[in-house]
Amino acid sequence: MANSPQSAKRARQNERRFEINKARRSRIRTFVRKVEEAIASGDKDAAQTALRVAQPEMMRGVTKGVAHKNTVARKLSRLSGRVKALA
């Protein structure tokens, strides 16, 4: 339980940010899942378009502090490599 008005306010702000960040993470995962499904189906065009849509969403997660820059860079690199490998 918060002991001071300041800590009570911080607790409220943390709850609000947690909900926003949770929604943003979920949204990013959805975009990544769409790329994964396109790769699994073997459709290169769909995979490329899904990756093109997912990329800015993942980078937005970096700017908003939801994900680390290197983590997103690694995941994008691996996804693009898998898309490129489709023949």
Rank of each mutant, 00 (worst) to 15 (best):
V83M: 13
K34L: 06
G65T: 07
K84Y: 14
F31D: 00
V72T: 07
T71A: 11
K69F: 13
M58W: 00
K9N: 08
E57A: 02
A8Q: 13
L79F: 15
T63E: 06
R82S: 13
N3A: 09
A23I: 12
V53Q: 14
S77N: 15
L51P: 01
R33A: 09
R16N: 07
V72Q: 02
V35Y: 03
F18V: 01
R60K: 14
V72P: 01
L51Y: 03
R78D: 09
R24I: 01
I28V: 07
R60H: 12
T71E: 10
D45P: 05
N14H: 14
H68S: 12
V32Y: 03
K44G: 09
K69G: 09
K44M: 10
A50R: 02
L79M: 15
L51C: 04
E37F: 05
G42H: 11
A47Q: 02
K22N: 04
R78G: 05
A87M: 12
R25K: 09
K69A: 13
N14S: 15
E19Q: 08
M1K: 06
R74W: 15
M59N: 08
A54N: 03
S41N: 10
P56Q: 10
K69I: 09
K34I: 02
H68C: 07
A67P: 00
D43L: 01
L79V: 11
V62L: 12
M58E: 00
T63L: 06
A8Y: 13
V72H: 02
R16G: 03
A11T: 03
A46Y: 08
S26I: 02
R17D: 13
I28T: 00
Q13G: 03
T30I: 08
A8W: 12
G61H: 00
S26T: 08
M1G: 11
A47R: 01
P56D: 09
V83R: 08
M58C: 02
R74N: 15
T63H: 09
I20D: 05
K34Y: 07
R74F: 15
S77Q: 14
V32R: 01
E37V: 05
R10S: 12
A46Q: 13
V32T: 04
G61T: 01
V35A: 02
G81Y: 13
M58L: 09
V83Y: 11
R74Y: 15
V32F: 06
K75H: 14
N21R: 04
A85Y: 11
I28L: 02
A46M: 12
A40G: 01
R52F: 11
